[in-house]
């Protein structure tokens, strides 16, 4: 197979189609025959309670789930998914022995490419960590570490960004700021955001899906009005959040 290269900055946004996703633990199906469409250039939020398999679903698309399987998993342009996604976890996953800057350029180092330091520094400036570029992650607060992880995700410059509860480990105010920052910097990309927080999904998602049941299935998509990020103090959002919470509990 010839080596393919993708210049993602000029690459049009791609969507992702998953057919027949399945996951079982000890013979008990968590989800089976699951179909998921992630539209191009938009943010899809996947909500669910713990253990419902939403992280596994995301990891299946990321290609890092040894357990979950899919009958068919393709990009909307018919190309492969491998090499076109960036992954951001709930934990910052910063390597403690590397400076913040070296963490941001980790992808290039792993691929044996030259690290684009000027772009990495520009990204660090965008997430407000220009002064911390040379610091070790242990010197940073939780919110700063997650911003460094966001810069590393952006540095990969991939068409699709998969985020697994990226802001759940920080305090409420920091979370709101991180959500605004992420929405601003990731605009135009195809995003799948897994979260257990209905308000987060409602702030950031063009499209919201709820994964629930045993075995789990996806709800009809909810598409709230208005541009993202939506205001956290919008009363309409809180009304919707209450409805979603009710759905989750059902």
């Amino acid at each position: 197979m010839p080596a393919q290269t993708f210049d993602n900055s000029t690459d049009p946004a791609i969507g992702i189609a998953l057919r027949g996703g399945a996951l079982a633990f000890d013979g008990r199906p968590v989800f089976e025959d699951l179909d998921l469409d992630i539209p191009a250039g938009r943010t899809t939020c996947l909500l669910g309670t713990s253990g419902v398999g939403k992280s596994s679903l995301l990891r299946l698309i990321a290609g890092i789930s040894p357990e979950a399987t899919a009958r068919r998993l393709v990009a909307s342009d018919g190309g492969p998914i491998a090499g076109r996604i960036a992954y951001m976890d709930q934990r910052d996953l910063l390597l403690p022995w590397l400076s913040v800057l070296d963490n941001v350029t980790l992808g290039a180092r792993l691929r044996g490419e030259a690290a684009e330091q000027p772009r990495a520094l520009a990204l660090l400036r965008q997430v407000g960590l220009a002064d911390e570029a040379g610091a070790l992650p242990s010197a940073l607060s939780g919110g700063m570490r997650q911003r460094a992880a966001l810069a590393r995700t952006l540095m990969e410059d991939r068409a699709v960004v998969l985020m697994d509860e990226p802001f759940s480990a920080v305090d409420a105010l920091t979370r709101l700021r991180l959500q605004d920052l992420a929405a601003e910097l990731l605009v135009g990309r195809t995003i799948l955001l897994v979260t257990h927080d209905p308000l987060e999904a409602l702030r950031l998602g063009h499209r919201i899906l709820v994964l629930r049941g045993d075995p789990a299935h996806l709800s009809e998509p909810l598409e709230p009005a208005g541009a993202v990020p939506r205001r956290a103090d919008d009363p309409a959002l809180h009304g919707l959040a209450a409805t979603i919470l009710h759905d989750l509990a059902a």
Binding site: R59, G83, Y87, L110, R111
Partner: peptide
């Protein structure tokens, strides 16, 4: 394991196995 998962998504699709 999280570090390795992250590295896998970063090296997926490239010529070297990573």
């Amino acid at each position: 394991p999280g570090w390795l998962d992250l590295a896998r998504t970063m090296t997926a699709g490239t010529a070297s196995s990573g």
